[in-house]
Computed example of a mutant assay.
Amino acid sequence: MDGFEFAPTTRFGLTYPFGEVTPRLARTITVSPGIEWVRMPLPFSLKFINLWLVDDGDGWTIVDTGLPLPETKSAWREILETRVTPEKPLKRVIITHMHPDHVGSAGWLCHKYGAELWMTRLEYITCRMLVADTGRQAPAAGLDFYRRAGWDEKAIEHYKSRFGGFGRGVSLMPDAYHRLSEGDTLRMGGTDWTVIIGAGHSPEHACLFSADRNVLISGDQILPRISSNVSVHPTEPDADPLEEWLESCRKLLGLIPEDCLVLPAHNEPFVGAHPRLQHLINGHETALTRLRQKLAKGPVNVLETFVSVFGRAIDGEELGMATGEALAHLNYLRQRGELALSETSGGVTQYSLA
């Protein structure tokens, strides 16, 4: 563990107790007794993910794992080399949700160290389902989904070339897991943690809250400086994930104290959960207001809503996530009877106010 002096900082109403200090690769920072902050690299616009190593006294627990990159595996080996012993093994790997930057190295760690995998049921099953798409051609349902959204053939070809890539970011998953459910209590790091389930960003996202420590391990459910993607996917085109996300944010407002230390998956640990949750809610409500104003001017397709939803034009590598999130806002309005749908001669769905 690195030794640091911390100078807390405040930005936009949130306090960052560790200031500008972050762990170097293969090094850790203790953020609460028995909880070490691990930081692994990502090859995305998000450059790092935060992971948590917990001293359970008779063993170790890891919460989230990083992608199965060579440098990530090497860093985990170095971190665990002096900690994991026959007398004090790696007991379990807890995964907040099934996105590859969180679950990617879980199978490798479980197989290498003989640890149990702990996840919610929908996250485990969905992960196994998406891994099974590896090597498959893009399905007709997916092609139709994006064509109806207004994608051109260049974007469709890009989707075809990338389909099935999820499994390449996930090491071989264990064939069994320990199920986490809403309200479960588990003992970790010498204290009790309650499982709080969120949805919208992923199907059954697990947060862990310790009332004794006043600490929340939030995964992607609360991030201090970015908003988690909330998307509709081709597998469930009529889904309403934005309602699930907003409800999850409201639920957390009622379950966790405002002054708890939040350990997020991205950016830095912070204090200020309530104002941040309210800001996330307000951001989506503002996007919905702008979207209604856009729709009042006449029918639009999904791509034509981007500036209203995100405040800017979007293309390139962000097109897929932007399409999913714009559809989440459109489906939210549609589920509440606010929209009428039509179709162009080219088969693109048009949305207008009912």
Rank of each mutant, 00 (worst) to 15 (best):
F145A: 06
A176K: 10
R83I: 04
G135F: 11
P86V: 08
L122W: 11
L172Y: 12
S105C: 09
T134Q: 13
V131A: 00
R77Q: 15
R148P: 07
F163A: 03
K160I: 12
W108E: 08
S171K: 11
T82D: 13
L90F: 07
W151Q: 05
W118S: 05
T120A: 10
K88G: 02
R92D: 05
H111Y: 02
G169P: 04
V131R: 09
A106Y: 11
I94W: 01
I79E: 04
Y146V: 12
I95Q: 06
M129W: 15
W76G: 05
L172P: 10
I94N: 03
I95E: 04
V84C: 03
D152G: 01
M173P: 02
Y159M: 14
P89I: 08
S105N: 00
W151M: 08
E81L: 12
E81D: 14
T82R: 03
M98D: 13
T82C: 02
W108L: 03
L109A: 08
R162I: 12
G104M: 03
L143D: 01
T120Y: 04
E123Q: 01
W76F: 11
A138F: 11
W118L: 04
G135K: 02
A106D: 00
S171A: 07
T82E: 10
K154M: 02
G104H: 07
L122D: 10
M129A: 08
W108N: 06
H99E: 15
M173K: 01
S161V: 14
L172I: 13
R168L: 15
S161M: 15
E116M: 00
R168M: 12
G104Q: 00
Y159I: 13
R136C: 15
L122G: 10
G165M: 09
R168I: 12
V170G: 01
K91G: 00
G135A: 01
A132V: 00
L180D: 07
E87L: 07
A155S: 12
A132G: 08
R179L: 06
A176I: 13
Y146F: 12
H111A: 14
D101T: 15
D152M: 10
L180E: 00
T96W: 01
V84Q: 04
R92W: 01
G135E: 07
R83S: 06
G142C: 08
L172V: 14
A155H: 04
P100C: 08
M173G: 02
E116T: 09
A155N: 09
G142N: 10
E78S: 12
K112P: 05
A75M: 05
